[in-house]
Amino acid sequence: MLNQCQDYLVKLELEFVANKALYLTQGVNNTCFRVETQCGKTLLLKHFDRENNFKVTLVEQHLAKESVVPNVIATSEKHKLIAYQFIESVEFNKSLHLQSLVAKLVVLHNLNSDYDYEEINLSTLFCSYTELAEYKNYQTTINQLLAKLKNYPYELGVCHNDLVRENLIFSNKTSWLIDFEYVALNDVYFDLAALCSSLALNLSDKKYLLACYFKLPSVSSQQLEKLDLYQQLYNLICYLWYLKHGFTSHAQALKPFIND
């Protein structure tokens, strides 16, 4: 493992010597290592395992300049490698981190870059799970939720679309977003709803989240209703994704939070 990480450093043209390496297991579409170097720097090295997903680093490099993503130290398109500053995450603190997360989302959702964004269609997205036996139990609910959302304005932005807890990093001062493999155009409420689920936000927290995001003194019942619809859909997407990819324990842990 240490030799592999040293090889990555060479390919990234970094003059660091790997002293210790730890394989990080949470990546699905990439291989990640936490690497301590002899000079005292700690890096996150990521190899993109799929041929076509390295281009998301264009978004990440832009967002790193806005402190939304940890500092990008080096990239190699030829070898599908990227090195970030490694940040040891602390426990989420609502009073400290929620406003920071909202500020980072605002930057992301208003992002302009040369990246060729696709636009997510939630109806099409759910079609990829129709072969699952469990899908039939929620098909009616999904259709009803999608139909209800048509009564609300569609607020398009560049969205992360995968804000699970593992893709949020917190320090003693601020927060960061990581892993942008699913970046695409979507209703910004999808990301906001994902935060609500991933951070187990209560009603008061949700009102604060929306008020901060939209810079309003208070939020409307319509905004809360739309957020709730997206949160239900987000939970269902995560549940079906876990089942499809064999993460049964994750799916079972999420099941009590699905409104059917």
Rank of each mutant, 00 (worst) to 15 (best):
L209G: 08
S175I: 01
A193S: 14
Y138R: 10
F214S: 07
K136T: 14
Y138V: 03
T140L: 12
C238F: 06
Y152D: 09
L163N: 01
N172F: 09
L199N: 07
S171F: 08
K226Y: 02
C159Q: 04
C159H: 02
K206Q: 15
S218F: 00
D179G: 05
G157H: 07
D162G: 02
L236N: 01
Y182M: 03
L203P: 00
L201D: 02
N235M: 00
S197I: 00
G157T: 03
L163C: 01
L201S: 02
D187F: 08
D228A: 15
N137I: 10
S175H: 01
Y152W: 04
N161R: 04
L233E: 08
Y208S: 08
F170R: 11
E225W: 05
N172E: 15
H245R: 10
V219N: 09
Q232S: 10
S171K: 10
L199G: 01
W241V: 03
Q139L: 13
N161D: 06
F170L: 14
Y234P: 09
I237N: 08
E155V: 13
Y154H: 08
S220C: 11
K207G: 08
A184C: 12
S218A: 10
S204D: 11
K244G: 03
Q139H: 15
N143S: 15
A194R: 06
Y154M: 04
I237G: 07
K150S: 12
L146N: 03
Q139M: 12
Y213C: 07
Q144N: 09
K150M: 07
L145I: 13
E225S: 13
D162W: 04
F180Q: 05
K215E: 15
I169W: 04
L199A: 08
S171L: 07
L209A: 09
K206L: 13
C212G: 09
C212S: 15
A184P: 00
Y152Q: 08
G157C: 05
L145D: 11
V219I: 14
K173P: 01
N151S: 15
N137Y: 14
K173F: 03
W241F: 05
T174N: 10
L243P: 12
T140R: 11
Q222Y: 11
E225M: 06
K136V: 14
D191Y: 12
I142F: 00
L192F: 11
I178V: 15
F190C: 04
A147E: 07
S175G: 01
D228L: 14
G157Q: 06
A200G: 01
F170E: 14
Y138I: 09
L209V: 06
C238R: 10
N143Q: 15
D162Y: 05
D179I: 02
S218W: 01
